[in-house]
Amino acid sequence: MITKNFKRVYVWELPVRIFHWVNVLCIIVLGATGFIIADPPAIMSGAEASESYWFGTVRYIHFGTAYVFFFNMLMRIYWSFVGNRFASWRQLFPFTRKALENAVHVTKVDVLLQNEKKFDLTNVSVGHNSVAAFSYLVLFFLALVQVFTGFGLYADNAGWWLPKLFGWVPQFLGGDFITRTIHHIVTWLFIFFTLVHVYLVFYHDWLEGRGEVSSMFGGYKFVRDERLKHDEPEEAPKKEEGSVTEHC
């Protein structure tokens, strides 16, 4: 039995990977500090209030990280215009006919776990698949909600113009209370996303075996040789009969 030949393809450029991991750290820190701020643990101390500032520090970390999160996001938006095709903003809008067909395929095969009758190599996404891409669009929207509500709540005490730009948000939504509630609920949506996202990355790595997990570290994914354009015409990919052995 002969296994297939794979080529190493540079998919995730360095800025994309940096964005990803900075984003991961930010979400963890923001989530953890956020929940502490929402419901602080009872830490008893004999010290005078004037000598302790732990809750202030937690909030400080939350606000500081929020800036990192925000500017990291801006950097990623910039890179979606100058980066490679997998980093492009077009990836986030999987609404072309081709992308929608891919979404149907992913839903059938990866979500509903059906087995394909005929293996089609072009169904295997090199970058994001359409469903994943759509989930990142949703996540991007949720991140915007967090930025708007978060800076909105912060604006009143801010001394800088940037957060003050968002001062209208709580007043638009009808007060700090509802703004805070939205901020809190969206945090939960981030947690749900993370659960599904991490699971699906492992799922693809396990079932496809082409470096899904490691790609976000090194940037490379492994793509079947036939999918690459070759310089010599005689080596042009010839379509093989679809069979289960295609998966090897």
Partner: peptide, 28 residues
């Protein structure tokens, strides 16, 4: 509920795609 669903999905995936997995493991 989501974590439970994921666990169920993971098990179902290994069952449904067992042929594919077996072939790949064999080749490897």
């Amino acid at each position: 509920a989501l974590a439970g669903g994921i666990a169920a999905h993971a098990i179902a995936a290994n069952v449904s795609k067992r042929k594919e997995l077996r072939l790949r493991t064999k080749g490897g």
